[in-house]
């Protein structure tokens, strides 16, 4: 059970590449990295979940915190390239209607 978080600054946006599992053990690390980016006024943050094969509801909590932080800091959060199982979580919880989730497209605003 491990998660690597790799942040790349790319043409005015922050791209977060995740690989591994997001659960109660790895969520704090992700939360710290994500919030430090969404707290930058006006920042565009794109999280790539292509290499995330498992996420539990704790992971959803991290992205909800991220979403709330974008509202306070006028920043943007977008999730891209989700695996089916992870996408299903956003679908069931209705979060696809409040968080910008793009299942297929690779990058790009």
């Amino acid at each position: 059970m491990n998660l690597t978080v790799d942040v790349q600054e790319n043409e005015g946006k922050s791209v977060v590449l995740l690989a591994g599992e997001i659960d109660a053990y790895t969520a704090p690390k992700l939360k710290e990295a994500l919030l430090s980016l969404t707290e930058k006024e006006g920042n565009k943050v794109e999280v790539n979940l292509e290499q995330v094969n498992y996420m539990d509801s704790t992971g959803l909590g991290v992205f909800v915190s991220g979403l709330k932080s974008t509202k306070e800091n006028n920043s943007e959060l977008k999730l891209v390239q989700l695996q089916d199982r992870v996408y299903r979580l956003f679908e069931i919880t209705g979060l696809i209607d409040v968080i910008d989730v793009d299942k297929t497209v690779q990058g790009g605003y």
């Binding site: 959803l60 909800v64 979403l67 919880t93 209705g94 979060l95 209607d97 409040v98």
Partner: peptide, 9 residues
């Protein structure tokens, strides 16, 4: 049944 989780918006 469609609906978002409690406490988000």
């Amino acid at each position: 049944a469609k609906g978002v989780v409690l406490g988000v918006t």
